[in-house]
């Protein structure tokens, strides 16, 4: 699929250099096209889009309260549909606004079957407020509220979403824009609730140089720390670069040790993370091969 030239996020944002969230939003909006409204709770994108009365976005953007994105999206979608409009409603939210404070509204909207797409760009912390721990922060990562490294595991958002049986669910990564683009196009072709979880390697938050965003995303996928897949009406398929990673992966240490947030991680912790990856890849493989 050819990615259109039209830009809906202009070149004048106030994003950090190397920002994955802007990159993801660029391809999400290219896939969605001009008949689209973005619903954005408090997150980095609240700031990135610019300061009133200017905006860096070329489509309507509705900024809403932190916990409310999915609920606003469902109300908006119902109103458009009631008026016979096909306008895409896309909630674009960070991980904090999704896995933590927004999970109730998300769960409700998914269960109700409202026709909208929810995209969670996951930079694995409250980056907008300066990198505090979120439910999506991975084990052993340092944040300003986990100075010794997070002791708990990353919340399994995808399993939570899957339990709602959305018509379409997928993961993606900022480093693989074509995979991301294709999934957004596919998601928006279906009525009902759709969900995408996109890894957003954040240079200042994860503590790596700004020019390495893409590389960090690639390492995440190649190590199996992040897997690209989609569930179309419940049926799982591994996509893109993750197909190779299902068979052969780089050691996760190659991904972890490139990031300042994992500074001080122990060999035991790395081994623990490696074992967890191998386990979860095995589970995904079983699900792909299964009939149900």
């Amino acid at each position: 699929m050819a990615i259109p030239d039209e830009e809906y996020i202009l070149k004048t944002t106030s994003a950090c250099a190397g920002c994955p969230s802007s990159l993801i939003l660029r391809y999400v909006t290219k896939a969605a096209g001009p008949d689209t409204v973005l619903v954005i709770p408090a997150c980095c994108t609240s700031v990135i889009q610019g300061v009133y009365p200017t905006t860096a976005m070329n489509i309507p953007v509705y900024n809403v309260a932190f916990a409310s994105a999915a609920a606003v999206g469902s109300g908006m979608s119902e109103a458009f549909r009631a008026c016979g409009k096909k306008t895409n409603v896309i909630c674009y939210a960070g991980d904090g606004g999704t896995v933590d404070i927004g999970i109730q509204a998300l769960s409700g909207a998914l269960e109700r079957g409202n026709d909208f797409l929810y995209v969670c760009y996951d930079n694995e912390a409250y980056s907008n407020t300066g990198m505090q721990r979120s439910g999506a922060t991975p084990f052993a990562a340092r944040t300003t509220t986990t100075p010794a490294g997070k002791q708990d595991l990353k919340k399994d958002l995808d399993a939570i979403v899957a339990a709602h049986n959305p018509v379409y669910q997928a993961t993606a990564c900022a480093a693989y824009p074509v995979d991301l683009y294709n999934k957004v196009v596919k998601a928006l072709s279906m009525p009902g609730p759709k969900f995408m979880h996109v890894l957003a390697p954040c240079p200042p938050g994860w503590r790596f140089p700004s020019e390495e965003t893409i590389e960090m995303g690639k390492l995440a996928v190649k190590s199996g720390m992040w897997v690209l897949w989609e569930r179309d009406h419940g049926k799982l398929a591994i996509t893109g670069a993750s197909k190779a990673a299902m068979v052969k992966r780089i050691p996760v240490a190659d991904y972890l040790t490139r990031q300042g947030r994992f500074k001080g991680i122990t060999e035991e912790q790395i081994a623990e993370i490696q074992a967890a990856i191998d386990r979860s890849i095995g589970c995904l493989q079983k699900e792909v091969e299964s009939e149900c």
Binding site: V39, Y62, V64, A65, A67, S68, A70, A71, V72, G73, S74, G75, M76, S77, E78, A79, F80, R81, A82, C83, K85, V89, Q104, A105, S107, G108, A109, E111, R112, N114
Partner: peptide, 22 residues
């Protein structure tokens, strides 16, 4: 009308906001 049986009051007003915004 479209009746949205939301999961909380926070979401009932949020859904009304989303709808009224259109």
């Amino acid at each position: 009308a479209r009746y949205i049986p939301v999961e909380s009051e926070h979401s009932s007003m949020a859904a009304c906001i989303g709808a009224a915004a259109t």
